[in-house]
Design a protein around this nucleic acid. Structure first.
Lengths: 235, 235
DNA sequence: ACTGTTAAAATTGTCGACAATATAGCTTTG
DNA sequence: CAAAGCTATATTGTCGACAATTTTAACAGT
């Protein structure tokens, strides 16, 4: 998985590289969510000094993947259902607004780019074998493009620079390549249409519904799971 | 100015203290916006080692007050009109949603607290002498309380932990204790009412209008300024 | 056996020195 | 004289060691 965040800058310093490695490890769950981070241990593991490791930890903190307490240490963030739902609430607000701004600020080139992407998705989806690709990378690509098209640096930083690392982490760890592929494609299509039309109000509404639908999908699946677990316990 | 961000934690380490001092200095403009930060110089100034200073810089970076480039150095963020307007767009999205969530999640205690605050504001406003206080601290208090009442940690972190440092910086440096005092009070009042009623949809709409009105107020004042400057140039 | 105290070990925070990189000023060359 | 290249200087990145704090373990007293 190439980790293609559009705000990503090429790693130049060693702290950069360790940061990316750790980011990947946390997102994929190789470093367990909620686990404590031992500076001496990890420094030895990556063959760097503690200063450099701490620099990397600071960047992980910036994208909300680890939390640090003074004189206590760092922990990887926890993945809780409540946290996931809260994340989707924030996404709904921010990406909805990004959509509205995209409808105002998008360039012709970006419109063409997005329509080309959509066409490619529809083809690979029709082939069905690319379905998992669509879910994972394709969906991210779509959302990233919309956000960038807002041309609002605040929104871009908040969403791409911070929220989406968590989004990817949750997707990996909860194993959510949800069965909303075809519906998501149609929704993406409608959103791009509204943006192209310059209809910011509609674009925002559609994006908010799109994300809210994902959230409700998760909520209902969680509810099902909970029922199943209760049944198991009671039998 | 007490710098009363509700997500603030008591500074325990020296890096914490230097961070707070620098944060204050940047917000107030004592360290100039857009200026380069010399690590050796500032380390000497605060009588700390470069490592500790860098730790403080990392935290300033987390709340988007400074930006760092590898092998080049750190700069204080610039204060541009475009940046300010972008900030208000993001606020509109996030605080609107915070309002909607507050209408769902607020506690009775928090409702009482907000109504008490409102009453206090109305009295001090009636006295007129507290007007500047209302503008500066009172307005912030109101917004902070709404955000906290959302009980959504993502929203709280994003807004209080990051956006609001920039908001305060812009307010200080552009000298904006805007003349919207009485209007703002009425708007605050309506928002609290909607939250108390559990009407999230209305609460979000009112908050968005409230922030959008501020933004438009700024936009028009900027436009006036620009016209004046043009007139000066042409005479 | 359990709780509270104290000492030892481990972890985090801070420091100063060195290495790698970028900036500025000078020299050389067309 | 302008532009490119080189050298010297300054700045940032990385390292290992020490100080301060927290955690663990042992111990004593009830």
């Amino acid at each position: 998985m190439p980790l293609n965040n559009p705000t990503r800058t090429a790693p130049v310093t060693t702290a950069d590289k360790v940061f990316e490695q750790m980011q990947h490890a946390i997102v994929e769950g190789d470093i367990l969510a909620g686990s404590k981070i031992s500076e001496p241990e990890l420094a030895k593991q990556y063959q760097i000094s503690r200063s450099t490791l701490r620099e990397a930890l600071n960047r992980l903190e910036k994208c909300h993947l680890v939390e640090r307490k003074a004189n206590i240490g760092s922990r990887v963030v926890e993945c809780t259902i409540e946290g996931l739902l809260e994340l989707y609430i924030a996404r709904e607000a921010l990406e909805g607004m990004a959509c509205r701004q995209a409808a105002i600020n998008i360039t012709d080139e970006e419109i063409n780019d997005m329509q080309a992407m959509l066409k490619q998705h529809s083809e690979s989806q029709a082939l069905q074998d690319g379905l998992s690709y669509y879910q994972e990378q394709g969906d991210l690509d779509f959302h990233y493009k919309v956000i960038l098209a807002s041309h609002n640096q605040q929104l871009i930083n908040l969403i791409c620079g911070q929220l989406y690392h968590l989004v990817r982490m949750y997707r990996c760890q909860f194993g959510m390549n949800s069965p909303r592929a075809s519906r998501a494609f149609n929704e993406h299509s409608g959103i791009i249409q509204a943006i192209s039309d310059g209809d910011g109000e509609l674009a925002e509404m559609l994006m908010r519904r799109h994300i809210a639908a994902s959230r409700k999908n998760i909520e209902s699946r969680i509810a099902d799971q909970t029922i199943q677990e209760n049944n198991k316990e009671s039998k």
